[in-house]
């Protein structure tokens, strides 16, 4: 179970929270000018990132407030918790990038 640090309430169990999908999906400026494909992409198309992913969370059993979270989808490490409306923090410098990818077992060049 994830232990999520709510900005208002402190560390709580994941079961107290609700997931709100990808963060920073801006509402189109002129929705009427979009064609069906663009509108569908705004509504339904989301990133499927491997690695750090910015997402929205709701502390539904506690303070009932939304917040953003930067979570690694591979390790589940929570890299940042920041308020709604704030820009995504740049964690690229903080997180060490893998120097070389491990070759699959038995693969030779």
């Amino acid at each position: 179970m994830l232990l999520i640090s709510c900005p208002n309430c402190g560390s709580r169990d994941e079961t107290e929270f609700h997931y709100g999908g990808q963060a920073h999906v801006a509402y189109p400026e002129n929705p009427n000018e979009l064609n069906d494909r663009e509108w569908a992409e705004f509504l339904f198309y989301r990133d499927n990132t491997k690695g750090a992913f910015a997402e929205r969370w709701l502390h539904s059993t506690g303070c009932r407030q939304w917040f953003n979270m930067l979570r690694d989808t591979v390790t589940y490490e929570i890299q940042a918790v920041y308020p709604m409306g704030a820009p995504r923090p740049d964690k690229a410098a903080a997180a060490p990038a893998p120097e070389s990818t491990t070759a699959p077992e038995g693969a030779t060049k």
């Binding site: 309430c9 709580r12 169990d13 079961t15 107290e16 059993t61 506690g62 303070c63």
Partner: peptide, 10 residues
Amino acid sequence: ALSTEIGNIP
């Protein structure tokens, strides 16, 4: 006073 879950009940 804290808002939480007890026995899976909010």
